[in-house]
């Protein structure tokens, strides 16, 4: 039996990525962030350190960094030490993507779990080389982007001036497209990185001429208008002005309504006027070009 679950994105929504809803051993509901890669889930249980997944063959798998088939996720239990924490109750996302969720009672297949060590073996590669390579690539891109953002905290940013960070960011997005955008979106939308760095990233993401990531970049910039950080909100507004997409108008209007910093509200108003003024005259700038 397959359960279909959707979560629509509306501008008031605050659930930006795939989430797992869990019930612990005491019946208390919890939730955790997930990253999605095609039919696979990349677990992000940083706050659940020491927690392990139990698989049918009795093997425990540490959650952090684990990648698992989406269709199997629902059947797994969580452990910490000897106690069972709970299991996944449902998975939803906020991108309007329908997620097919098998219910626990029909999930009897052996789950496919790939770890760094396993994926490096010849046997594993022979069993599913493309899948294993994809997992390896995912891990590589995530790690590279994490390091890039971490190292950028030492940099000084000026408007309109490139840095090693901006050059590398553009290069990674152009090379790894949505794979890179997934990790960048995660770091920025969950506030995992320094605000100055996140803001700088948003400014440059808006400028990239890469149609394949256009929708994701636009979504991230619109989402970032509601960031807790004023630096990020300002950069998101500047980025959206640069992209010049009429789709952003409703998000900017909402951001203006909610903005508590007078100066920023004024600047957002200017961006709104600029966007509204250009809607009739032009199509979205730059990014949609080949």
């Amino acid at each position: 039996m397959i359960q279909r679950t959707t979560a629509s994105t509306d501008i008031k929504g605050d659930t930006p990525t795939l989430k797992a809803f869990l019930t612990d051993a005491f019946g208390i509901a919890k939730e955790a962030e997930l990253g999605q890669l095609a039919n696979f889930i990349r677990w992000r249980f940083q706050d659940w350190e020491g927690t392990a997944l139990e698989f049918p063959e009795g093997r425990l798998q540490e959650l952090t960094g684990t990648t698992i088939d989406l269709s199997e996720a629902i059947s797994l239990y969580f452990h910490r030490g000897s106690s069972v924490l709970g299991k996944i109750a449902s998975i939803t996302d906020a991108h309007n993507i329908v997620v097919d969720i098998p219910t626990a009672e029909v999930s009897s297949c052996k789950p496919r779990v790939y770890t760094q060590a396993e994926a490096s073996t010849v046997e594993e590669v022979e069993q599913g080389p493309s899948t294993v390579m994809q997992q390896e690539l995912t891990r590589y891109v995530e790690k590279t982007i994490d390091c890039l953002f971490e190292s950028a905290t030492e940099l000084y940013f000026e408007d309109g001036m490139e840095t090693d960070f901006s050059r590398e960011l553009i290069s990674l997005v152009k090379k790894y497209s949505n794979l890179a955008m997934g990790e960048i979106s995660y770091l920025i939308s969950y506030g995992r990185v320094d605000s100055e760095v996140a803001g700088e990233a948003l400014r440059w993401l808006a400028r990239i001429n890469d149609p394949s990531t256009y929708s994701w970049r636009l979504w991230l910039l619109e989402k970032s208008l509601s960031s807790k950080s004023a630096v990020v909100r300002d950069s998101a507004g500047l980025g959206l002005a640069c992209m010049g997409d009429a789709h952003s108008i409703q998000y900017i209007k909402k951001a203006i309504e909610e903005e508590t910093i007078t100066e920023l509200r004024y600047d957002l108003q200017g961006i709104l006027e600029e966007l509204e003024g250009s809607v009739d005259a032009t199509s979205p700038k730059g990014n949609t070009e080949a």
Partner: peptide, 27 residues
């Protein structure tokens, strides 16, 4: 030349005082 967000008023700072990040614009 500055970056405006580095100069936003902060509720936790007394009136007229710049936040520490403002110094980034005065290197």
């Amino acid at each position: 030349v500055i970056r405006k967000p580095r100069w936003y008023k902060q509720a936790w700072l007394e009136e007229g005082k710049a936040q520490a990040n403002a110094i980034l614009d005065l290197r």
